[in-house]
Design a protein around this nucleic acid. Structure first.
Lengths: 97, 97
DNA sequence: ACCGAATTTGTCCTATCTTGGACAAGTCCA
DNA sequence: TGGACTTGTCCAAGATAGGACAAATTCGGT
């Protein structure tokens, strides 16, 4: 999940939440909640975080999107089938957009 | 997409929108919009539809969910990568829920 | 054990978006 | 013409996002 990744990155850089919070102009409680997946991370925050934490934005974006999708399907019995169907759609529509 | 499927099923049964609308207690405009994917189909409607149209609910549900997921990822460059990651998550968490 | 900093948790708020509809008016055929 | 369908607009209720703030908890040093 994204939260764990953000925390891991922050700690690997030796940063404390207060410093990250300052960069995003929010308080530390908000950061804490991002890191524990209690609050969604907005795309603009995500961009700033990738810059500040020095990580490829695409990687973060992938986790972010996967989390959102997972949240949508996790309670559905047909989750896997639906994911496979979605892939087909995506592949089809990237060939000729 | 779900809308097309619903329309196809309805027509295959020789039904008109008015009849489906009556079953769901809504007007035909609403049905029309469901069939053209302009309005989301709620789960309770979906259940009634599967019963009324005589189709396996799971099949409809799969399309319904795939549509929702597709909508979420369709504009993202990392769509496919995220879908694959989501699959992993789903597989992992179905083994030990 | 104690202190202060770091983090977490709980509650609250406002603004915006989404749902699930209705209704009116239009279009399309046969 | 009339039935079937579509399109556009509107609306209330509920959900969600994006925070702030206060209070509680945890944790590293000493």
């Amino acid at each position: 999940m994204l939260g764990e990744k953000l925390k891991e990155l922050r700690e690997a850089r030796g940063l404390v939440q207060r410093q990250v919070a300052a960069k995003l102009n929010v308080d530390t409680a908000y950061i804490s909640k991002m890191e524990s997946n209690e609050k969604p991370v907005s795309r603009t925050h995500l961009k700033k975080l990738s810059k500040f934490l020095g990580i490829n934005e695409e990687e973060l974006l992938t986790i972010w999107l996967a989390d959102k999708v997972y949240d949508m399907v996790k309670d559905e019995a047909v989750a896997l089938k639906a994911l496979l169907a979605t892939e087909e759609q995506v592949k089809k529509n990237t060939r000729r957009p």
